[in-house]
Write a protein that binds this DNA or RNA. Structure first.
Length: 526
DNA sequence: CCCCCCCC
């Protein structure tokens, strides 16, 4: 948490009525005046802390972006004097970033960048209605909510896009989990809140963004909130789904957006935003406060409080449009599907892609908790003793069966005998990649994939035609797969080792594999 | 004082 100095003025005495002054005397910035630590912090702040390819959270929120928050000294610049909204006394215009519960005599001059619809609620604690707005000035942004009477008073007054003087609100600690606004605090309108439309509508920024390049979205964890800017590549038809939680139907529209990082990503719009979307392919959209989801590697989903601006008049939009109309239109785009370190949609577990050398170097499978990883490797050797075992043929039993003296196969677990067993693979294979070697254990499903035959078929073949059997083994050797594995620590004669079990294997899709390699190369930022 | 943000 960033250190914050609070100065509470308990009393002051007016020595002389000087009227309204820009400043009195020769005030100095508080931090510098404190000396020592304060100066050190300032010097640190001047260091180039920003690394180009890294996507760092802004301040201590989980809001990600490329821009640093507004520097503190901007706050002083924002301190100006406002025309009175109440007649008589002039009020100091306060920067939004300076609002806190410790000070309530302020007026902000802010643009409404978003206004929600009126929402009605009823729960065990009561019922009511509310609306909320996002307020922006050059220092920052804040959410403000009007409940019940204040909903009636201010809903029509506040219009999206307009600039207002606002004062006398309550300042509460923001509930970050419910907000995509970057502020420690949020406002609620009170009975004596004053809101007045500002004559000068131009001096407040339209919106503030912290764009994350589409290629960097994989670095953002699921459920975080980001801003993105991209060119609309595809507009999918409006569809309707039924919400699992509310059982209510809701409109949905998927867009595919792209940017010059040569990544495409799906952006889902909901409800009215989905219905009203009418922007054609080739236009730039800037989207603020969208949710990052892990579907298909990474995708984006609009909240009802997310906002979209079509072809905004900002540098990023102009350069993207230039890029797209020039070359981008005919380029190919990567997605974040199946990238190393992404979350597997199937299991929801983190499955890092590892090289075989990394397994050893990083001690994978040498800790209490199992590790999961994927790796691309080639089978170089299949151990032929114990390639399969005779298993109980009963559904989902799989217990090893023993042949009786009368030729029946006995299962201890089922307490039954069967005329013949069902063979199941328990292969141990040696795999290699360009970095090293490992032993993997595989069971029936994966064994079938590797051999292209059931263990029963292979067992039969070995009995009938030894050479044909060896041909199958040889055919499976030197094949390459993407292996999905679980690593668990085990002990053998007092020696700890990593027991690596293959949970699934897929053959190499060369198009996909090439894309992944290109992504890896791009990640070096060359 | 709401706080759900949906699907595959």
């Amino acid at each position: 948490m960033k250190e914050r100095r609070i100065l509470i003025v308990l009393n002051l005495e007016v020595l002389e009525d000087l009227g309204i002054q820009e400043k009195i005397g020769d005030p100095v910035v508080l931090e510098a005046a404190v000396g020592g630590q304060g100066q050190q912090q300032q010097q640190q702040a001047q260091q180039p802390v920003h690394q180009p390819r890294q996507v760092a959270p802004i301040s201590n929120t989980n809001f990600y972006g490329n821009n640093k928050p507004a520097p503190q000294n901007q706050l002083q610049q924002t301190m100006k004097l406002a025309p009175s909204s109440t007649g008589g006394h002039a009020a100091a215009i306060y920067p939004i970033e300076g609002l806190s519960p410790y000070q309530n005599k302020w007026t902000i001059k802010a643009r409404v960048t978003f206004k929600s619809e009126i929402k009605h609620w009823h729960n065990q604690r009561g019922e009511g209605k509310l609306f909320s707005v996002h307020l922006l000035d050059e220092s920052g942004e804040i959410k403000a909510t009007g409940f019940n009477d204040q909903c009636d008073s201010f809903y029509e007054v506040l219009q999206e896009g307009q600039v207002y003087f606002i004062s006398k609100c309550r300042v509460n600690i923001a509930k970050k989990q419910f907000s995509n606004i970057q502020n420690e605090y949020e406002l609620s309108f009170e009975r004596d809140t004053e809101i007045e439309k500002c004559e000068d509508q131009s001096s407040v920024p339209q919106e503030r963004y912290n764009f994350v390049e589409l290629g960097n979205v994989s670095q953002i964890e699921k459920d975080n909130t980001i801003d993105v800017i991209g060119v609309v590549k595809e507009v999918h038809d409006l569809s309707e789904i039924t919400s699992k939680t509310t059982q209510k139907p809701i409109s949905k529209r998927d867009l595919t957006i792209v940017d010059s990082s040569q990544y495409s990503i799906r952006l889902t719009l909901w409800g009215k935003q989905a219905q009203n979307f009418s922007t054609d392919e080739g236009n730039v959209i800037a989207v603020k406060g969208v949710k990052v989801s892990d579907f298909n590697g990474r995708s984006l989903s609009m909240y009802s409080s997310s906002t979209m601006s079509v072809n905004p008049d900002i540098d990023e939009a102009h350069s993207l449009k230039g890029w797209y109309d020039g070359s981008g239109k005919s380029e190919n785009f990567s997605t974040h599907a199946n990238i190393g370190g992404s979350l597997s949609a199937a299991s929801g577990r983190k499955e890092d892609r590892k090289t075989l050398a990394q397994l050893k170097d990083e001690g994978i499978g040498m800790s209490e908790q199992p590790d999961y990883f994927t790796t691309k490797a080639t089978i170089v050797f299949i151990k032929q003793d114990n390639i399969s075992y005779p298993a109980c043929p009963a559904e989902a039993c799989n217990k090893k069966v023993i042949e009786d003296s009368d030729g029946q196969w006995r299962c201890e677990k089922c307490d039954k005998s069967y005329p013949k067993p069902n063979h199941r693979y328990i292969m141990t294979i040696s795999v290699n990649d360009h970095t090293g070697q490992a032993w993997f254990s595989t069971f029936d499903d994966v064994g079938k994939q590797i051999m292209g035959k059931t263990a029963d078929e292979l067992f039969q073949l070995k009995e009938e035609n030894e050479q044909a059997y060896l041909d199958v083994i040889n055919g499976a050797t030197c094949t390459t797969f993407n292996f999905r594995c679980r690593a668990k620590q085990d002990n053998f004669q007092g020696q700890a080792w990593a027991y690596l079990v293959v949970l699934g294997a897929t053959t190499i899709n060369f198009t996909q594999a090439s894309k992944e390699l290109i992504e890896l190369i791009n990640a070096y930022g060359i």
